[in-house]
Each structure stands twice: as structure tokens, then as C-alpha cells.
Design a protein around this nucleic acid. Sequence first.
DNA 1: TACAGTATTTGTACGGTGTGCAAACAGTGT
DNA 2: ACACTGTTTGCACACCGTACAAATACTGTA
Lengths: 226, 226
Amino acid sequence: MSAAPTPGRTGPRRALTQDQIVSAALTLLDASGPSAASIRGIAAKVGVAPNAVYTYFPDKAAVVKGVVERLLGEVDHTASGDDAGSWRDRVAALAVELRRALLAHPGAVPLMIGGPMDGPHALALNERLLELLADAGLDPADAARAAYLLIVYAFGSIAMEVADQHGVAPMPPEQDRIAARLDAFAAIPATHLPRTAAAASVMAGYVSEAQYVWGLHRVLDGISPG
Amino acid sequence: MSAAPTPGRTGPRRALTQDQIVSAALTLLDASGPSAASIRGIAAKVGVAPNAVYTYFPDKAAVVKGVVERLLGEVDHTASGDDAGSWRDRVAALAVELRRALLAHPGAVPLMIGGPMDGPHALALNERLLELLADAGLDPADAARAAYLLIVYAFGSIAMEVADQHGVAPMPPEQDRIAARLDAFAAIPATHLPRTAAAASVMAGYVSEAQYVWGLHRVLDGISPG
DNA sequence: TACAGTATTTGTACGGTGTGCAAACAGTGT
DNA sequence: ACACTGTTTGCACACCGTACAAATACTGTA
């Protein structure tokens, strides 16, 4: 991901950068969903033969990793700064910001769950959470466990929200998605699934920031010290 | 998924059933990871031309849905029966059983996050959770929200645990996976990420039943009424 | 028993995928 | 001017999902 020109080397200058390739992949992902981010499509987008991509990345998985890292880099950590209130408020702000950043590129979300998130920005997010949870008074081991719980909740929630749209890009407005779910739930047989049928209107609203924040606060309740 | 022979119809008898195809897909998934579950591979496994699969399923996505449903059907709900103690114990037993069932087929886990889980077994799981949470004293709306929180936690946790292995099948033993993570974390720069570096040993244990249960109990703490 | 009708299966084919290999090319240091 | 090296390309391979038409196997009816 570094664009260092490596001054003393021979051969022709590179026509591209890794960032340009990642950007092209993300553009295709946003425009046409997860299946559109093919090596051939990316290469065409940046005006190069498909094989040229392999000069910059060893394989497609590496490109995907680059896209994931890019997205995690777009998470604004200042929203959880020291002037943002209590540690709870700051964790909540970071979680909401994470959801915003990821839902801005729904086509890329399924790619995150495909492999481990161990890049620099993923680690930075982890470090930030550890700081916030240390401020909360948790000892380091509990802070780490709690940080992972928060990460699992956030990514799980966002992934399931995107999965509900099964890869349609871009993400329709929340109200439309909720309305569509409500329609689908109308077919639930109340005889066999009485509680599910009765809860249909609440379940329709699963894919919303409100549910995300509600669940987040239950998790925060659970990890609060004392 | 029904094997009804439909007695009064013409044409040759089917050579297969939907269940056989789903079984073949699952076998391939278990043996060789997510990429092995191709239509062609499945067809070869059941001894039929690739196109024949399309007599039983409209497209590959439907086969995948069948696999997901099969897996959810393998979740043993009796582990959370009325004689299993408090509502917390029963929810925990169900969650642990869900993890067991899914980690038995790690290659299939990424497929679950690819689309909405709205099949009969998924709804039955939801219904069971609603029952357990009603027993806990939650009103229907909160029970539904809490059920979704639990589902998000369980599937998010399991999906991330599988992702950490990036599709290797079968799942290595927990100790091996934790040891491998610990090795990887040794490269974390303590200067820029002091808390993460210090927490490496805890973070290595993220992919364990112990962490899963710990987080589960924090969630249960958060949703407990009163 | 012969026939018509239909559901199943297959052969073939199309356009797509990731990516390996060898040749062509472009730029730098000597 | 030349050798060297990294970049890019053309071509090819094996594989993918799946559409289409032909062949096949079975049932209900005449």
C-alpha cells in the first residue's frame, strides 16, 4: 500500500499504484455488487491487461484485503475522541461510525468475513477500543475480551444487515428495507411460529440503526465494570 | 426439500432427491472448503451431468440455501429443554450447541452470511429464542430485539472464528489455532500498538469456546430484565 | 398394446473467472 | 551503446454457472 518510488531500480516505471487498483475495485463493488470486482473488470477499469494486476498484488485475495483495509481506514476515529463524553458514548460513537463507513460500501462487506482482519487499520481499531475500555476501568484482559465482543457484534450486525439485501448495491433506504421485510414476514404461519409471527413488526426493524444501537447498549450494559 | 413422490405425474422417475444433492454439497464443503461446492463437483459426486442439478434447484444459490437449512436443522434444540435449568442456562446451551453444529462444517459457514437466513429452521431457531426470552420475563418486543442480538452475536462470532482460518477444512483443534494466532501477534509493533501488543495472549484466545461463552454471558447480562 | 404427452437427463456451447507462461517492451546503470 | 531488470501483454488452460435443444424414460389414455 506504500507508493515509495524505490529510486535506484531498473525497468520501466509502473503505470499504476496499489491504491488505484483498490479504488477501481471499490468503485466496481459499489456500482455492481460483490460479483463485479473481478480481476478482469478491475484491470479494464484502470486501463490495463488483466495480468498486470498481478504485478501489484500476488492474487485476488490480496486485492480484497486491500479493499477491506481501505474501508477500515475510512472509519473516522475522531468521532470517539476524548471530548465525546463518557467512555460509553465514545464507544457508541465509534461503533455507529463503523457502521456508517461499512454500509457506505455494502458490496464490500461480505468480503470482510471471508478472511481474517489483521491489517494495520484493523489493529488500529482494536487499539482504539482497548484504550476506550481501559478508560472504562476494565483490566487489560477483560478489555481485550470486551473489545472482541464489540467487534463481533458490530461486524456480525453489519454483515447480517447487508446479507438481508443479498448483495444489492447500493443499499436502499432503511425504511424501504424494513417495509420489504415486513411484507415477507406476512407469510409466516402463526400456527407453528406464534411468537415469531407476533413479533414480525419488530423483526422487520432488525435492519436499522435503532436496532444496532439498542443491541450495542445491551452489550455495553453487559461489559460495564462493577 | 420434500421427497414426496407426486404419484399422478408422468415422465421418468427422478434419479436423485434434493437431500442427496445437499448432502453431496456438504460433503465437498467439508472435504475441500468453500470453493469445492461447485455445481459440476456436486453433479459428479452424485453421478449425474451438471445440468441435471437444475431439475432440483433453480440455481446455485438455492443449493446453498439448502445447505444452510440443513446445517440449521442439525442444531439440537433439546439441549435447551425445559429441564436444562434457568433461562440463561438454556439460552447458553442452545448457543453452544449452535456453535458446535456450525463449526462441524466450517466450509459452509461463509455461505450463511451470503444471504438472508429465512428458511424454516432459521425461523424455528428464532421461535425457540423468543420462547426462552419470554420465560426470562422480557416483553415480546424486547424479547425479539434480544433474540436478534443473540443471533447476531452467535453467527458473527462463529463467522469470524471460521474466517480466521480463511477457509481451511476441516477446522484444526482449538489449541493449534490459538497457538498460530499467538505466533502471528508476535509481529505487532509495541510502539504504535502498545495495548494490542500487551493483549496478544488474550487476543490469541479469541477463537475459542471460552471466549464465545464469555461474550455470550456478557450479552445475557445486558439483556437480563430488571 | 400402441401412442401421445411430459418430466428428466444429457451434449454442447457461451461467456465468464483466476492466473501461469513466454514474449515484447521500457527504462536505468555501466 | 549495451546489458540488465522489472513491467506489461497475448495467449492459453482449467474451471465456473447455466441456457438450449435433443434424447430418453416413464405414465395415462385410446
